[in-house]
Design a protein around this nucleic acid. Structure first.
Length: 277
DNA sequence: CTCCAGGGCAGCG
DNA sequence: CGCTGCCATGGA
């Protein structure tokens, strides 16, 4: 098998997989993570700061390096300094807990669909629904590992999205609308990727089923606008419990999206303590 | 049984 | 503008 290794700080496959920003990354019993994006996949294994990938150096350089945000080490050094010099004890705890998180650069089309599904939904069910969509419309890309691609727009028949097996509920109509729109405007995704953060958010919000939260998630996890700060139920809960005078995400400027992810991950995975008051 | 989940929309004022 | 009730689905 072709393999390739790198070393990295501020990087944890486990934390990224459990961070809730990606829905198709999963670990096998041997702590080997399968990372899937569009019609590609790679397996990765981490021992301390060494990460080994089941792909060639070229494939890593061409795609996975950027996908995993491993070309942005300087940003994570900068945010480490920014958090350490602040006096925000909650953020310091959240950062200490999840400092191996990176903001992935995921496929734009895949994130549009995934985050529309995510609304008023929970992570395990979001993952199941996306898996069903891939099996229903996607292509078998690994028989050995039983992996299906995320379908492209033309692989999806909008008229079957309401099938009970998918369990999309009222979200089926939202998907139908955006998929039809993208089929009629093939340049849409590229236009989004070239747009500024402000224009991308506004444009995304113009579609049914995409509001402030979903649009900011797409901006953060696909378009890599790390100044985006999606506010969901967890972030609201964190702010209510820890910031009686409100939370000024602007302090972290272009890195506030990364801070948001530390907060989210800490709230999601640090289950002991908390819940007093 | 109720409550909740990476919210958004329509319909108000 | 901001606020409120409703929206499908499934797991706890």
């Amino acid at each position: 098998m072709i393999m390739f290794s790198i070393r990295a700080n501020n990087f944890s496959l486990e934390q990224i997989a459990e961070s809730g920003q990606c829905f198709r990354m999963k670990a096998s019993a041997a702590k080997v993570y399968t990372i899937i994006s569009g019609d590609r996949y790679v397996k990765a294994y981490q021992l301390y700061d060494q990460i080994t990938f089941s792909c060639s150096y070229k494939e890593y350089e061409d795609y996975w390096k950027k996908y995993l945000d491993l070309d942005s080490d300087a940003d994570y050094i900068a945010i480490d300094k920014l958090i350490n010099k602040s006096n925000d004890e909650y953020i310091k705890k959240a950062y200490a807990f999840g400092s191996g998180i990176r903001i992935l650069k995921q496929d734009t089309w895949e994130m549009i669909i995934s985050y529309i599904i995510s609304q008023n939904n929970n992570i395990p069910r979001i993952k199941k629904t996306i898996e069903k969509i891939c099996r229903k419309y996607g292509r078998l890309i690994s028989e050995k590992d039983d992996i299906y691609s995320f379908p492209t727009p033309d692989m999806i028949d909008e008229n079957t999205l309401e099938d009970d097996e998918l369990g999309l509920g009222y979200r089926a109509e939202y998907l139908k609308n955006i998929i039809s729109y993208i089929k009629e405007h093939p340049e849409y995704i590229t236009t989004l990727e070239l747009a500024s953060y402000e224009k991308a958010v506004e444009n995304l919000k113009g579609h049914k089923g995409i509001g402030p939260k979903v649009s900011n998630c797409i901006c953060l996890f696909a378009l890599h606008h790390t100044g985006a700060f999606p506010i969901d139920t967890h972030i609201k809960k964190i702010i209510a419990a820890n910031y009686p005078d409100g939370f000024d995400s602007g302090y972290y400027g272009d890195y506030q999206g990364i801070v948001q992810q530390y907060m989210f991950y800490y709230d999601l995975n640090n289950v002991q303590e908390e819940d007093e008051e």
